[in-house]
């Protein structure tokens, strides 16, 4: 009797506390929106000047910010780099994860390859940074292609671990049946195994996308001389042009945050599921 009562009751006090706690998350975003829509003249020195509603909602700051940061081109670069990295990652990492997952138990060399790649997780970018700047320049890939290739390498340890771990749940029977039918291992992989790993593809895509989209350090050191920049990097590059015009700067920050927020609202389930999945399987 007592048990049934407990199960049905929602904890109202806790709900209220958690709703109030959301302020810590939403306040910085609220502040950014209020400032971005305001004229610099409305920014008086007291808190209300910054946090109050603007006298009228103006998109002028956004227009100006788009012009300064060459928004559409920068957005295009970010989308291009992130999506190409995901495609490469899904192909290269899943193949490697499959080959390792299926051979690790029998072959020492594949077991070694597994630990060799996974240990890369603990190599900080700081140690690779300076040699990579030289290397990519020498190879003529100190550009978007270089950044993409580096991302494919940086996310390889985590993704290979996820894929080979996931394969433990994929029964061998499918491949054995295909074998009897005379299909090559290569064909079996692409027609049967690759489609079966869909849940893991989603996890890998989400984790890789969040990492590459928000990364500043790699494009900063690799592409600093080129015209191409990514959305976060543009905020750094144009700091001096924003100067003390915070309204303009915040409009630009919001523009840079909006694409990922839209992506989050649409794919929230996959993103949270992907993160949880990745951590538990890893």
């Amino acid at each position: 009797m007592i048990k049934a009562k407990k199960v049905n009751n929602t904890n109202i006090l806790l709900t209220i506390i958690l709703i109030l706690g959301c302020v810590t998350v939403l306040f910085p975003l609220y502040m950014a929106i209020m400032i971005a829509f305001k004229n610099p003249s409305e920014m008086t020195n007291d808190v209300a000047g910054a946090l109050g509603f603007p006298s009228h909602w103006s998109f002028a700051n956004f227009k100006e910010a788009m012009r300064i940061t060459d928004f559409w081109r920068t957005l295009g670069n970010s989308i291009f780099i992130t999506s190409t990295t995901i495609v490469f990652s899904l192909i290269v990492h899943s193949m490697a994860g499959y080959a390792i997952g299926r051979s690790m138990a029998r072959k020492k060399s594949f077991k070694f390859a597994y630990f060799y790649i996974v240990s890369g997780m603990f190599v900080p970018f700081a140690i690779l940074m300076m040699p990579l700047v030289k290397e990519t320049a020498q190879l003529g890939i100190d550009n978007r292609l270089g950044v993409i290739l580096l991302y494919v390498v940086f996310y390889m340890p985590m993704n290979v671990m996820l894929y080979s771990g996931y394969l433990k749940n994929v029964p061998l029977a499918m491949e054995e049946a295909a074998d009897i039918d005379g299909a090559s291992a290569w064909r079996t992989y692409w027609t049967i195994i690759f489609p079966m790993m869909k849940p893991m593809h989603a996890t890998v895509a989400v984790l890789t996308a969040l990492g590459t989209w928000n990364d500043v350090m790699t494009p900063l050191v690799i592409m600093s001389g080129t015209k191409n920049t990514t959305l976060p990097l543009a905020q750094l590059n144009f700091q001096s042009q924003f100067g003390t015009n915070y309204n303009l700067a915040f409009a630009s920050y919001l523009l840079a945050l909006i694409p990922i927020l839209i992506f989050y609202v649409i794919c929230q389930k996959q993103i949270i599921g992907g993160i949880a999945n990745g951590a538990v399987k890893g």
């Binding site: 290269v92 990492h93 193949m95 490697a96 499959y98 080959a99 390792i100 299926r102 051979s103 072959k107 594949f110 390859a113 060799y116 790649i117 890369g120 190599v123 140690i127 690779l128 300076m130 040699p131 990579l132 030289k134 290397e135 290739l149 580096l150 494919v152 390498v153 390889m156 290979v160 090559s184 291992a185 290569w186 992989y189």
Partner: peptide, 29 residues
């Protein structure tokens, strides 16, 4: 053996990239 060859082929792109952009810069550093 042909299956193992395929496995080797599948892991090769990852290994090449990893050596080129992780191991080599690590050693250079």
């Amino acid at each position: 053996s042909s299956r193992d060859k395929t496995y080797l082929l599948m892991i090769l792109p990852a290994i090449i990239l990893f050596v080129a952009f992780n191991t080599i810069p690590l050693i250079t550093g």
